[in-house]
């Protein structure tokens, strides 16, 4: 009986843990969720700022929130086409993701003509390391936001204005956007590989 009371009181304090507990051994209820569940939650979050913020919460979240499975992946070297979410070229990927965008691909290709943002990491001056980083290309058009993520190595210090850069793309095709943006970034970057991730959501 006493034990039961103890457990109950423990439970009720647990409920208020979030504000007060700083205990090492404490495991947060949300971390009881399995990886699949937690990733499902993250899949509802947009890359900026939420996925980058959740990635910093703890190691497990870092691994899950940055997991490639949360992105549709375009990888020319891919052999096994049965792997979910991986496509040999952008066009296939977009047409599969079309139900998310609810826009015809051909229409999309024509309309894609707005501002593109390039967001990158900063060169680490102190260590002079070749750093691996993501370049996030954010394209806005119609009522959609598309995030393209390209993995790059950067070798030179970046001018500060490149860290967040917006520029007009003109009326290029979607593949053109990537090559334009990456060509632009190529002045400062060496490609680590040609894998591109993308993610779309309706613009609010």
């Amino acid at each position: 009986m006493e034990d039961e009371e103890k457990i109950n009181s423990e439970r009720s304090t647990k409920r208020f843990k979030s504000k007060t507990m700083k205990n090492n051994s404490f495991i947060a209820p949300i971390n009881n969720l399995d990886d699949g569940c937690l990733m499902h939650v993250f899949s509802f979050l947009s890359p900026i700022p939420d996925r980058y913020n959740t990635a910093l919460v703890c190691h497990r979240w870092n691994y899950l929130a940055c997991h490639p499975r949360l992105w549709l992946r375009v990888d020319q070297s891919v052999k096994d086409l049965s792997e979910p979410g991986v496509f040999p070229d952008l066009k296939t990927a977009v047409s599969v993701a079309r139900f998310v965008m609810s826009v015809e691909v051909s229409f999309l290709m024509k309309q894609l003509s707005s501002v593109l943002e390039v967001r990158t990491g900063r060169y680490n001056k102190s260590s002079h390391k070749m750093n691996n980083c993501d370049v996030l290309l954010v394209a806005l058009f119609q009522d959609l936001v598309i995030y393209f993520k390209v993995e790059l190595f950067y070798t030179k210090p970046l001018p500060l204005d490149l860290v967040i850069q917006k520029y007009e793309v003109g009326s290029s095709k979607m593949t053109g956007i990537i090559s334009q943006a990456t060509k632009f970034a190529m002045q400062y970057f060496v490609f680590s590989n040609k894998i591109c991730y993308f993610y779309t959501k309706p613009q609010k």
Binding site: K17, S18, K19, M21, N24, F26, A28, P29, I30, N31, L45, P49, D50, N53, T54, L56, V57, C58, H59, W61, N62
Partner: peptide
Amino acid sequence: KNKSVEYVREFLGIQNDF
């Protein structure tokens, strides 16, 4: 959504292991 790292940790009671 749209919360800072610190807020999420505090809100869900997650230990920062970085």
